[in-house]
Design a protein around this nucleic acid. Structure first.
Lengths: 102, 102
DNA sequence: TGATTTTATGTCAGAATTGACATAGCTTGA
DNA sequence: TCAAGCTATGTCAATTCTGACATAAAATCA
């Protein structure tokens, strides 16, 4: 949690490693944030592999370029639902995704 | 999607097997629904293993008994976020969960 | 260089999710 | 049987997420 804090730290030049280390996240908050970041990386990989721009991907997802950018950035306004739905829409299977996550 | 349709079918006495078979879900919708149902089963297993009532689990999650019931039922009003957060709050790790999902 | 394309960030109204409540239905055990 | 505890379902105000837009920043390439 506390994304404002992270942003502040980063803006001051701090390198933030794993979220849990530098912010005082509870284990469950850390697991959630790291899961989201992991998914955002998977989404980025899928998009790149298919050689799509964010705009093109957005069109496929019936979303917008800006939201795709936020998905890939692991923005706090993005839900796991949206990330999973997007990956499934890109043709990923559950096995596919869970393997890339584990 | 189209949960109303499923509810209607079920109310008429139809047995709905896998979602994809009887509703005309797109592959990505099916993957999403099945993922949610899989998670709800995992949550149920965790709760039973810890011998908690829905009410007790709800208290731990700072939620309510009714929402826990909906989580375990895979209700459309429940997000993947809530399910993952709940599992993490119960002490599950990401590896833990993804393995039970794959 | 600078024009074009791609990506990032801020904002917001509308849509979806949430905890909480009420209450119904179901299980268990005496 | 029936009472007590547990689970299911419907509803709703408050919160959160979403697509869309504007625009800034960064990357690409001639």
């Amino acid at each position: 949690m506390n994304n404002a804090k992270r942003k502040h730290l980063e803006s001051k030049g701090w390198k933030v490693g794993t979220a849990k280390e530098f912010l005082n996240l509870s284990p469950e908050e850390a697991a959630y944030v790291e899961m989201k970041l992991a998914l955002s990386r998977v989404l980025y990989e899928f998009r790149k592999r298919k050689k799509l721009t964010q705009h093109e991907l957005a069109r496929r997802l019936k979303s917008s370029q800006s939201r795709v950018a936020k998905m890939e950035a692991g923005d706090p306004s993005v839900s796991l639902d949206l990330l999973f739905r997007s990956l499934f829409a890109l043709g990923a299977s559950r096995k596919n995704v869970t393997q890339m996550l584990s």
